[in-house]
Design a protein around this nucleic acid. Structure first.
Lengths: 210, 210
DNA sequence: AGTTTTCTTGACCCCAGGGTCAACTTATTC
DNA sequence: GAATAAGTTGACCCTGGGGTCAAGAAAACT
């Protein structure tokens, strides 16, 4: 590979990392090329497909962060606490990084690598859930599939509120957690509900401009 | 208005009602015209904007159904039961009719009429919630905004699962309801979780092809 | 039946995104 | 310092959505 090609690839990786993180895995490839200061033809030359770029730029990072979250969740003494930590942490990752959100929601344009991560995430989730259920802390009919589905909707919610009330998703997570807990404790919510003017924006984004 | 124009308007209304109901308020206008057997120019002639068409075709129906749900919810003896009924019923409406789902999620392209419905829905929701809270059946820090946000995500979830497991959203609703209830009762779920092969499809739709 | 008015049509324009490729430029090699 | 291989570019095509409008068709009026 020629030296300038190497440099361009690096610039593209950097631009892609930025944009994926800012706006998710669906950003126009032409825009990535633009930010990298390179023709979009070059992008297609060096990476061929969006998936390849994703694999190189996002997959590793996302896998690491999700892996850490799972590991830490399993290290809790009380399985129930670990369970709650895991859900909150993953949702937080989704909220702060649209790229991770898209990875968790799986199957973008079917990058091999992403599907693998998705599988790992589901396995980890299942392990964490079952551990908490064995400890009697979580209702026994909640499954990994349920959690993934929740992550899927949380990704959309978190993105919709990102510019308006970046923590709004926490309330929904809290409601879910008390719903899943076998102890009836309803801890006070740490975040205020949305004000009516914020609702306009958020609902618009939730249903509108993806 | 000329007789043929009248007929065409009727055909367009019919086609629009069908397509909105099948695929939500964002269906291409050209497709509505096609189904009506009419040029898309005619559609623009007779209705001008998508919003006008929505107002004529969808708004009334949606308002009626949502209104009925709210009314019935308030007619329950036990406020908590009414509350649960309302949430389940609205989610069901969203699941069976993408048009209603879009109405509840508010602000499509800002049809006057839709915003009004959205406001009414929020008011109704608030009333139902407060009644249940007064009866001590629902946690006191849950708000109408929280519920609308939940409806917003449910709309997306219901659409994602529609072709794969049309009742899958019920599990999430059940988790929410037990989380909101002040009684720790966890009733058994009426719907099975998704099987792994179904997850692929659903997660794809949730994040992908809207 | 002829005239006028209203309506319909489909070709046309716009934009944004994905993707390709011949012609050009630049690094590397000898 | 050529010759050659490797890489880059941007004009170009395609798709699918929104939207307009001159010309032609059809209803309504007299």
């Amino acid at each position: 590979m020629r030296a300038d090609a190497q440099r361009n690839a690096e610039k593209l990786r950097a631009a892609a990392a930025e944009l994926f993180q800012e706006r998710g895995l669906k950003v126009p490839l032409k825009e990535i090329a633009r930010r990298a200061g390179v023709s979009h033809g070059t992008l297609y030359n060096l990476f061929g497909t969006r998936e390849a770029l994703i694999d190189e730029v996002v997959a590793g990072l996302a896998a690491d962060r999700l892996g850490e979250a799972a590991e830490h969740a399993l290290s809790f003494e009380e399985a129930g606490k670990g369970f709650a930590y895991y859900i909150e942490r993953v949702c937080e990752l989704q909220a702060t990084d649209p790229a991770v959100a898209d990875v968790v929601s799986g199957r973008f344009p079917a990058a091999e690598c992403l599907m693998a991560i998705c599988g790992q995430t589901k396995d980890a989730a299942t392990r964490i859930i079952e551990r908490a259920q064995l400890a009697g802390a979580v209702r026994p009919d909640f499954t990994g599939e349920d959690l993934l589905l929740f992550f899927g909707t949380n990704a959309l919610l978190a993105r919709a509120v990102a510019d308006t009330a970046p923590d709004a998703w926490r309330r929904q997570v809290a409601f879910l957690l008390t719903g899943l807990s076998t102890e009836p404790a309803q801890e006070p919510l740490s975040v205020a509900p949305l004000a009516p003017p914020q609702m306009y924006e958020v609902m618009g984004r939730l249903a509108g401009t993806p």
